[in-house]
Each structure stands twice: as structure tokens, then as C-alpha cells.
Amino acid sequence: MIEAIYSFFADPNIQWVLFGTMLLGLTGGVLSVFAVLRQQSLLGDVIAHAALPGICLSYLLFGIKSVPLFLGGALVSGLLAGWLIQVIVRHSKLRQDAALAIVLSVFFGLGLMLLTYIQQLPNGNQAGLSRFLFGQAASLIASDVRLIAICALVTAVVVILFFEQWKTLCFDPIFAASIGMPVKMLHFLLTALIVVIVIIGIQIAGVVLVAALLITPAMSARYWSQSLASMIWLSALFGCLAGLLGTVTSVVLGDIPTGPVIILYGAIIFLLSLLLAPGKGLLMGGRRS
């Protein structure tokens, strides 16, 4: 038994995938706290869809398939999408959710148009599209994991450096602006980190499900925590746990895609928190609104 477990974790391929999904879950967990508190849970969903035209354009411009170039293109279009949402909300009577849905669908439609255009070019082919749409955690290689690790490190440093400022921004944005905090810069920093983690996450979970990495851990953590710091720790833990359980399950059972299983574990953790968290859970004396 112990032998079997040992040989399971000794497989280098599994090690990389496991390490990658756990780190991604952890980083997503940390960022999800700020995304949910800033009422931007669905931003991840929008950015994931908005990445497609960026990836296509970078292919059209440079004519080669390279992951860093694709990431660059996705980063630009993701940030542009984030900015456009702000513009629509600020300059019209449309609300945030409408702006999110508009930007999401139009960017993805544009991406689709470019993609089909590329496919009918002489040297274009659609390799990698279904990987983009549904993710493929099993194909994680060392360089991907290194990228996730760098991203996790940067996120950790930024969160530690700007903890107090982001805390104020989350709980009282008007006060934050009135004492002269660089609200725009802080907001941009958060959006940029979300864009990066989403684009890396797409490779594992796919374009639709990556949004869950940035929502579910924080929602679960909320039920168990009394302060922002403990919420961040718990959220990171839940994200990491979902990554671990999802990867192990999908490897043990075989032929099961890792991304959806990770998301479902996240949902189970959320359901348990909703029902059982002491004081706040529905079965533990928590009140309905």
C-alpha cells in the first residue's frame, strides 16, 4: 500500500502536474479573496474569454506558435477588456454585470472570427484550440510549472507589500480614495495579477472553468474566517487542496480530465463550508438573510 503510494508520487510527470495544479490553486485562492471582495468575481471569466483574440492576433502578427508570445497577446487583450469594462460602467447607465457580459461575448466572438480566419490561411491549423477551450492539465511540463511558480511568488510578494492598501480598497474604496491612495494603480495591479493567473490557468482548466479558480476558494474561506488575513490563508489552502485532490483523483481513475475534477472538488469544499462552518453554516445555526 505504502509502496504503491510512494511509487505513485515518485513518477516525475505526476509530480510536475501535481505541483502545478497545487500552486495554481494556491495562487488563485489568494487572488480570489480580493476579486470576490472587490465584487469582481466574474472578471476572471471575462478575461479568460478575452484572451482568445489576443492569442490569435499575436499569431497573425508574428506567424509563429510560441507560448510567451501567446501569453503576451492574451495579457494585452485581457487588460484591454478590463479597461473597457471600466469605461462602459463609468460613462453609461449600464451596470457592471452588463458591461462584463458585453465585453466577454464581443471579445470571444472576435477571437472566434480571427481563429477561423487563421485556420483557412495556408500555414494555419487549429492545433491547440481544444486545449485552449477545455484545458489539459496532464500536459503540464516543467516550463509551465516554473511559470506558475514565478507567478505565485510575485503574487505573494505583492500581497505582502500592499496588504494594508488592498484591505482598505476592498472594505472602503471611498475612504481609500479620500486619503489619497493610488486607487487606480492598486486596482490595475490587482487586475494585472488576475489576468496573468487566468491566462496560465486556461491551460489547465480551460476557458470556461478557470473562472471557478478565482471565485470558489474565497467563497468557501469566508465561512470559516474572521479576518482578511485568515481568509487569505484559508482560501489559499482550499485552492491548493482542490488542486491536489483533483489531480490525484484524475490520475488514479485515469482518462478523466483534471480541470473539471479540480473545479468539482472546489464546489464540494464550498458546499461543506456553506452547510457546516461553525456559526455561519446553514446547519450550524447560520441565518438566512
Binding site: V36, L42, I215
Partner: peptide, 19 residues
């Protein structure tokens, strides 16, 4: 929160579908 509720619902059901 409304947006988070939508997010967790649809990603879970979609993950189930893919599975």
C-alpha cells in the same frame, strides 16, 4: 454575493457536463 453565486453555480454545472 449575486455575481459570486452565479459564478460558482455555472462553473460547477459546466464542470459536471464536461466530466
Amino acid at each position: 454575493k449575486a455575481d459570486a453565486a452565479i459564478g460558482v453555480t455555472f462553473t460547477t454545472l459546466f464542470a459536471l457536463a464536461i466530466l
